[in-house]
Design a protein around this nucleic acid. Structure first.
Lengths: 167, 167
DNA sequence: TTTTTGAATTAGAATTATTCTAAATCTTGA
DNA sequence: TCAAGATTTAGAATAATTCTAATTCAAAAA
């Protein structure tokens, strides 16, 4: 089961229809079988995959595709705003097809990553930005327990004994 | 001029006094000249430096220190919560001695990184967290123009002609 | 249609940041 | 003083990514 299914969050992506080709062409890029396939892997098959995960999945139905092509595709998709980079820690960069404002919730127990929405204007108000700054984009990551892992960890102990300190 | 000076933000660090030694000892670590020096470099000499920047600066007054020691020190400091990791993009990991809740503002024009405070409870309210999740920590990065770079870019054109879209 | 031009793909080399390893050195407590 | 273990170190190894240069492919021009 994918993280998206498990956490029961609706996927909302930038390119539901022919938008994919439009965005490529707007950047002077061609739509190719490789690009279509790589993009579909990121969108449909996995959640926030790394380049290597995309490569392995893409190879299943396109065995001759190379790692270099996967990297090239992903880089171009980021340039034409079909994907965003997600850098949760020192590890490999992940790719995210949800181009709406959202944060990434990383469960420290199961390792899943899922999207959590926020309102950009409200987020801005929470930040004590210096006068004159022009914020253009926000990247928010949350670490903690996801609902299913929290349930596992609390089902054996009574609520009052829980050491979990939500904040 | 350091980013901290330029952006005129007060530095507030976890270990102003003898807290440094206490935190090391609480994790079973010794206070050594190398550790003291590396920590002081991160705290006083640079803002959000990478391991390599710390190494180069530390070498100035301790020429025999090795890169391995710098990495070891930084890793231990993160473990005993004297420093936090900051991963702004694919590049090298940065280290931050401000252990209070805050976000990192990255200026896309000059490349400086400075701290921006937020209220943890308010941030939590802005996020549409799923029922049952237990958030433990937040990492917020903002990209945009810092006040000085914004001034440079707008001083030649009238305010109405500005293409800048703050949000 | 053929040619030309440049984009896309590729394998493998190179690079970058980081981690690992094993030896030497230093500290502390017995 | 000795033993145990922590610290430091150089350099090797690793992981992720980027670069390079050759090849293939596709669209526009002739």
């Amino acid at each position: 089961m994918s993280a998206r299914d498990k956490h029961n969050r609706q996927g909302r992506y930038a390119a539901p229809a022919g938008d994919f080709e439009d965005r490529l062409q707007a950047s002077g890029l061609r739509m190719t079988p490789h690009r279509e396939h790589v993009f579909s892997v990121v969108c449909r098959e996995l959640d926030h995959p790394t380049a290597e995960q995309v490569f392995l999945k893409a190879k299943e139905s396109m065995p001759d595709i190379s790692m270099a092509t996967v990297y090239n595709c992903l880089e171009k998709f980021v340039e034409c705003e079909l994907l965003r980079l997600v850098q949760l820690d020192r590890g490999a960069t992940r790719y995210c097809p949800n181009m709406h404002d959202h944060s990434h919730y990383y469960c420290e127990s199961c390792g899943d990553v899922f999207d959590v929405d926020f309102d950009r204007r409200k987020l801005r108000q929470v930040l004590d930005l210096p006068q004159g700054a022009i914020p253009m984009g926000y990247e928010v990551a949350v670490r903690g327990l996801c609902p299913s892992c929290r349930e596992e960890q609390t089902e054996d102990i009574s609520p009052n004994q829980s050491k979990l300190q939500p904040n």
